[in-house]
Amino acid sequence: MDYFIAILMMGIFFLGFVFIDNIYSIAATDTKVKEMNLTENKKVKALILGDIVFSSEIKKILEEEYDISSIIVPDTKDLNKSEKYEYVLAVSKLDLENLMLCSISANMMNVKNIIAICNNSYNKKIYEDNNFSYLYGNVSSYQLVSTFFSSMQKSGGDSDVHY
């Protein structure tokens, strides 16, 4: 009788082991599927504020040459501050909007890679005092994007961009 109980206990232990192993493999598969979905959806995002035509050119360059998805926001009031962005490009014709987006992005959204266009020479000091990267003057969309990404590869980072 003792042998029967011992064999029965080993059988129950083995069935429990198989049952737990099957549950764990199902949970592990679920986790792998979730991880795959997260990495697929984890495409780098850029936020572009400004003129629709100029912003559309930048968006096209970012998507075709750098594989970066981007969102164009024509005005700061349309900005979704809860969204996570890797890059912010402020290309409005108004320096006030560009500075406001740079400030919001740096302080509230914790974006590290920010660049703006400085439209008026008397605002250069404001960009520099706040450590915002900028390009001054009549800048093409391709020049803005290429300068921005090449400056991030330098040892000083994007803070070296003040043209």
Rank of each mutant, 00 (worst) to 15 (best):
S155A: 10
V33E: 13
D160Q: 11
I71E: 08
S56L: 06
S69D: 10
Y122M: 05
Y24Q: 10
Y3T: 08
L38A: 10
M36N: 08
K77R: 10
F4E: 12
I115G: 05
I72Y: 04
C102A: 09
S150H: 08
K124H: 00
K93W: 01
D75Q: 11
M1K: 12
A27T: 12
V73F: 05
K93N: 09
T31Y: 14
Y142Q: 07
N119V: 00
F132S: 06
S70W: 00
M152P: 01
H162W: 02
V53C: 01
I52K: 14
L135W: 08
E128F: 07
F19I: 10
V44R: 15
F13I: 08
I115S: 12
L101W: 01
K77N: 10
K154T: 11
F4K: 13
G16V: 02
S55N: 05
S92E: 03
E64S: 12
G50W: 02
S82E: 05
K124R: 04
I5L: 14
Y24A: 11
L144H: 06
M10I: 15
V73W: 03
A116V: 06
Y66V: 13
S69F: 07
C118D: 02
V53P: 00
S141N: 01
E65K: 15
E65N: 15
I61H: 07
N138W: 08
N138S: 13
I61C: 10
Y24W: 01
S141I: 03
I72C: 04
K60N: 11
G137V: 05
N80P: 02
D160A: 10
M100Y: 11
I61L: 06
V88Q: 06
E40A: 12
Q153E: 15
K60T: 08
M1F: 14
Q153A: 14
F4S: 12
V33L: 14
N113M: 03
D160M: 09
I58R: 03
N120F: 09
V145L: 04
S69M: 08
N131Y: 03
S105H: 03
S133C: 09
I20P: 00
K81E: 07
V73T: 15
I72F: 05
G157P: 11
I114Y: 11
D51V: 05
G50P: 07
C118Y: 02
Y122V: 04
F54Y: 15
D75V: 04
T39I: 12
S69N: 13
F4P: 03
V88L: 09
G11K: 13
V18R: 12
N107A: 15
N98L: 02
F148N: 04
M9I: 15
S151P: 01
D78C: 14
G137L: 01
I20E: 11
L99P: 08
I12T: 02
I68C: 13
F148G: 12
A106R: 15
M36E: 11
Y87W: 08
S140V: 01
P74H: 13
V88Y: 04
E64G: 05
L62A: 06
K112Q: 11
A27W: 13
L135Y: 07
E128S: 14
